[in-house]
């Protein structure tokens, strides 16, 4: 069992390691203006850490796909530069691209090819000698092995998505871009995909994913970047982001309905709901810490409960709710409008 002293020491030992490892992707002052005049990206600066799962969130048209497309070589940047594993994506494109795998948003495939042929083709295209054992491992890890001789046209949408992932992994990339990886995939398959992505991360692959499903980012990401109108609004550790921006609410189901909030409770951010049967208390999740640190004191829950008791207000049930990443995301995007 780890003692309380050992844990911080181990953390301290790890900290310097994390700081010296250079980022695996560096985006500097990147801008893109399309021929139509649309300014898709505006001076983006971004660093992706080695071995993390980074989720890029943003509404439609925010610039997520343009950013990924530039890094992967599908779109030319107007300004700025990108380094992938230390290699410039333009001047050192061979080195940079051989380290990158891309799973596009659209289910594009050669309909009449077999799974095996199309995945083997991808490996060759990325300059790797044939390695049937590796292709077999990839197909098995994505439960595609039984389908290896099937033509792509005969596969379901979820299977086609897996084939795209298999193609992207065929050349053993260090960095994997997943553009909306679970779009149109049912819940069960989505969870399986998350498991696949986690396994990849555990094997040392850095994952950058864009998603519309906030739940996906909340479930998987280590860090989150929010992009809107071509600008990175923030980049933050997911836990930190939820801690900083998440608000909590405590709902008390009262025994007897109230018409108004009593005068002596005016100091708290309280509101009545459900015809006075519910008393809702809003407080900042930021202030909630460990009990030992007096977090509940700071949030005022204990004081509120004591004051309620003193005021003779009884409740039969209570529950708390923390704002989800989705709510945080919506409020961030709204703020910037």
């Amino acid at each position: 069992m780890t003692s309380n002293i050992e844990a911080p020491l181990r953390r301290a030992e790890r900290e310097p390691e994390r700081t010296v490892v250079p980022p695996v992707v560096v985006v500097e002052n990147l801008s893109k203006t399309y021929a139509s005049g649309f300014h898709a990206l505006k001076n983006i600066d971004l660093e992706i850490r080695r071995g993390e799962i980074f989720a890029l969130l943003g509404p439609n048209g925010a610039g997520k796909t343009t950013l990924i497309s530039i890094i992967c070589g599908l779109v030319n940047a107007s300004e700025g530069r990108v380094l992938a594993d230390g290699f410039d994506i333009v001047s050192d494109y061979r080195e940079a691209r051989s380290r990158i795998g891309l799973v596009p948003q659209e289910l594009t495939n050669e309909a009449f090819e077999t799974v095996w042929a199309t995945v083997s083709f991808s490996r060759g295209l990325f300059g790797k000698p044939p390695d049937p054992e590796h292709i077999e491992r990839v197909l098995k890890s994505l439960t595609l092995w039984d389908k290896r001789n099937n033509k792509l046209i005969t596969l379901s949408g979820g299977m086609k998505r897996r084939v795209l992932i298999a193609k992207a992994l065929s050349h053993e990339p260090k960095i994997l871009f997943l553009d909306e990886p679970t779009a149109g995939v049912d819940v069960e398959l989505r969870r399986e995909m998350w498991e696949v992505v986690r396994r990849l991360r555990d094997s040392g692959v850095t994952i950058i994913l864009t998603t519309h499903y906030i739940e996906e980012a909340e479930e998987m990401a280590d860090r989150i970047g929010v992009i809107n109108h071509g600008e990175i609004i923030l980049v933050e550790e997911k836990r930190e982001l939820m801690r900083k921006l998440g608000s909590k609410q405590l709902t008390l189901h009262l025994r007897h309905p109230l018409e108004t909030v009593p005068e002596r409770l005016a100091g708290y951010r309280l509101e009545l709901a459900a015809g006075g049967k519910e008393l809702i208390y809003h407080y900042d999740a930021n202030l909630v810490g460990d009990h030992d640190e007096g977090g509940d004191e700071a949030s005022g829950i204990a004081a509120l409960l004591s004051d309620l008791d003193a005021a003779g207000i009884r409740f039969k049930d209570l529950h708390t709710k923390q704002s989800s990443l989705e709510e945080i995301f919506v409020s961030l995007v709204r703020e910037r409008r």
């Binding site: 992967c72 070589g73 599908l74 494109y93 061979r94 080195e95 940079a96 691209r97 051989s98 990158i100 891309l102 596009p104 659209e106 594009t108 495939n109 050669e110 309909a111 991808s122 295209l125 990325f126 300059g127 193609k167």
Partner: peptide, 14 residues
């Protein structure tokens, strides 16, 4: 036409 050109453009090929 099918969109698979993305792979060609993102590959380390001249």
């Amino acid at each position: 036409f099918t969109g698979t050109i993305y792979e060609l453009l993102s590959a380390p090929v001249s």
